[in-house]
Amino acid sequence: MDQIILQVLNGLDKGSAYALIALGLTLIFGTLGVVNFAHGALFMLGAFCAITFSRILSLSHVVIDETQKDFLGNPLKVDVPHIYDWFGESAGQAIINWSVPLAILFAIPVMIIIGVIMERGLIKHFYKRPHADQILVTFGLAIVLQEIVKYYFGANQIPNPAPEAFIGSFDFGAAIGLKAGTIIYPYWRIVYFCFAMLLIGSVFAFLQFTTFGMVVRAGMADRETVELLGINIDKRFTIMFGVAAAVAGLAGVMYTPINPPNYHMGMDFLVISFVVVVVGGMGSLPGAVAAGLLLGILESFASMRQVIEALPGINQVVIYLAAIVILLTRPRGLMGRKGVMED
């Protein structure tokens, strides 16, 4: 029982990352009709926004400490962050300690700007081109973005820990009356799941309850009619591209304490996120979220030792097997619109 609960928690947490990326992909496909293979790179850029923000907070001046020696026997150069000078050492440490959540404020405008530049500068020229062209150009863009990040940040992973308040684990077992220590779950992963749900809820609320969102939804359903009403739908869709970039970026920001980021992390998520979008139903926002969580849980269960022993290799293919089964029995995906992909 405890193993099942543990893997459900794992799956929800893992699935929430898939869902966030897939949500952005679906937003872009649903509004602009573009298959954006650079979306994983946006997730990666978000993570590096967190790294950049942490480095900005840690910008230092050098103080020579004559009492200590470096590895060559020279007086030790100690980096003292400027923020210590401005706010005092303890306040400065606290700000640096909370750099990941604070990076959200930095990442939102940066990612929206990146998204808008990407859409206006490149992707808009491919709206009327076949999906194959869109895939090629966005995949190429993803590689360019990766290489730029690799050039500036190096190829190795960069640790970016969660605030100390969230380091450690919550004992679910004790909380629900099971034996203490049987279901332990890290605080930051719980924060990540809650953050993902909040972000997904905010995107849905934005689309559902604002005039802007209503126009966007109308544009997704019937672009020509909305344009005939004199509404500049292109401008709104460009903003939605920025919003989708910000959603992917924020997913990346909050993911940095879970896995230290490197330039390649976007590609690791990209393929799975596309499977999530297709399984959820192309263009279906609730479908993307549901499929993300479902496939996350399936992947977690397939990683259990007992399952691997019974079905060797299942952990590597379970997501794709599930996708095949779902698409064979329901070609439009879990929550796709009737008729889509069903001819």
Binding site: L6, N10, G11, T182, N259, D268, M304, I308, N315
Partner: peptide
Amino acid sequence: VAAVKTPLSQTDFSSYVAPVLNS
């Protein structure tokens, strides 16, 4: 007690690590 193979491409090891404590 056990030896579990993990895919080389794996990035999130939570589902492999979580059961260890109860093994």
